[in-house]
Amino acid sequence: MYCLEAFELFHRYSNHDVVLDGINMRVPEGSIYGFLGPNGAGKTTTLRLLLGLLRCQQGSISIFGRGFERHRIEILEHVGSMIESPSSYDHLDATENLAILQRVYRCPKQRIAEVLAQVGLAATQRKKVRQFSLGMKQRLGIAMALLHRPKLLILDEPTNGLDANGMVEIRQLLVRLSREDGITILLSSHLLAEIEKLVTHVGVIGRGRMVYEGTLADLRQQQQPSMSLSVRTSNDRRALEVLSGLGVLATTVADGLALPMMPDGHVANLNRHLLQAGIDVYAIGTRGYDLESIYLDMVGSAA
């Protein structure tokens, strides 16, 4: 069952640049969906479309199984969001900002104190948002998105401006919300490493197209066949000869030699032969095709 489905989204801004070119997106219920892409790829544009902040020019969006255009208000009752910079009122304090939303959503007053505690802003008292740091504003933005216990949370770069500690806190909060309350979370980021520990599903966007969509586990699977061994020695050219004598297909790369993956016993044997040939071995390791490079490959290939 999908919490959010978008089909063939297409968007051009008034200056006629096509920014989104057929985006398909399916966010499973209860998932934490990481929406990845480099700067200017169209993440914010997509999320704005999903929330109705931009008029849908082509394609369709359904949330909670209902068409967005026709059921906008009912859907928005259960969606919390923060797009780009937080939208809090400068001249009010955190509690007053939340009180505005509390009136509109008609949720219990004690929710205000609850969400402030959740994002670590309980101690700001009567401080005006004008006097908040960037990270504090970001936290308030997240609190505003959480106030009415949404079923779907849409966050655009939520850890923007947070310190290392804050990032971990917010990540833990999101995982807890997903696990305990079953909230579906869609969050964007331009860094895979930042959300890798958090998400269950990923969608990768590059230049207005979805270049990958699936579970994080599937993405990891993809890297297995492309793994290789890397070897660094005092004399790579001699080592190459020794290796070809052993029947191992090696190639020279920028920082040493690349070998196909092999069992541990073979690696030890190979090492012994190199040493006997008078070659010093500095390092043997696996050339991890890590998620970052997979992601870079994908985004690059969309060009």
Binding site: L51, L53, L76, S88, Y89, D90
Partner: peptide, 12 residues
């Protein structure tokens, strides 16, 4: 306050 986007995502 860049808050129109907040206002327009309220169920109103």
């Amino acid at each position: 306050n860049n808050a129109w986007k907040q206002v327009h995502t309220l169920p109103l």
